[in-house]
Design a protein around this nucleic acid. Structure first.
Ligand code: FES
Ligand code: FES
Lengths: 151, 151
DNA sequence: TATATTTAAGATATAAGAGTCTTATTTCTT
DNA sequence: AAGAAATAAGACTCTTATATCTTAAATATA
């Protein structure tokens, strides 16, 4: 798919944390249980976000992870780039070594346009915006079989 | 990336064949050399396109592959679906099990819109259209280090 | 008919992504 | 000080994607 599985776990986890911004820290175990994914795997993913300065963490009792900055200032793009790298926003659709306006591949023109839209969208879409819509519209963050968000 | 490597090999190979529609068959070896990719791997990829009815093949001397239909009637989408499946055009951006208007994930609205544009683009973009632009504008089908298309 | 040419098919190998497990390390509580 | 609760780090395993290699089948030509 368009983003890696690791990356969508990261986005969903970040949204879960954003939904609980009132709490100082949320434990990774709680996130993993609500989103229906492996605790250990999620730990690794969130470590990456912490190292990139998107989250902060705190060890020990009452510890966990939280957003390093206000949810309003964290874009989806930032998370995608942290996990998957820049390729989605700069790579060639046909997988050529470089994507270059001066030496375009056949799909360049059409893809570059859509890609810009995608980048704009991902840049403008913040965790705060999505968290707000999740709260108001009850959007789902997990598969149906996973534990509900309402806890 | 957005499509698999296998898939972009397939698209580039199909374009190479479309560029030589005048010839009854083009050998896979010739395609692989011009595009700079493994003959054996390309053979497997083109077998898939042949099985899906996008190409036809012929064994033996003077054999090779050719388009099963006029280049004008083969869309990029058809090739993507043949190799990567429908997921790109119907899957959830967050990797949830289903993408559903009634139970959307937070990114659904924004992604569904872009995805429709992508699907339209891929459906309307035919091998003939791209081959024509490649001929007129000299667009590149391969990395620079690969053998040139001009032979 | 024999040989060369070409794709078909399938087995094998390598690399990357996804996921699990174990052992630190930090911090709170008692 | 001891023990419990939590993340950090790294080794390990499993799966999928990518790529290679070998053999078979079909076809043309000499
Ligand atoms: S060169 Fe291929 S998308 Fe830009
Ligand atoms: S439900 Fe996630 S993109 Fe449609």
């Amino acid at each position: 798919m368009i983003i890696s599985k690791t990356c969508d776990h990261a986005i969903r986890a970040a949204l879960y944390v954003a939904l609980h911004e009132d709490r100082a820290y949320v434990t990774i175990r709680e996130i993993s249980e609500h989103l229906g994914l492996s605790f250990h795997f999620l730990t690794k993913i969130l470590q990456a976000l912490t190292q990139k300065g998107i989250m902060t963490s705190f060890k020990g009792p009452n510890g966990g992870v939280s957003l390093a900055r206000p949810a309003q200032s964290i874009s989806i793009k930032e998370i995608v780039v942290a996990i998957d790298g820049e390729a989605l926003f700069s790579g060639c659709m046909l997988g050529l070594d470089t994507c270059n306006d001066d030496h375009p591949c056949p799909l360049h023109q059409q893809w570059a346009n859509l890609r810009d839209q995608l980048e704009t969208l991902f840049t403008q879409t913040t965790l705060a915006y999505l968290a707000d819509r999740i709260r108001r519209e009850g959007l789902r963050l997990a598969n149906f079989e996973a534990v509900s968000l309402v806890s």
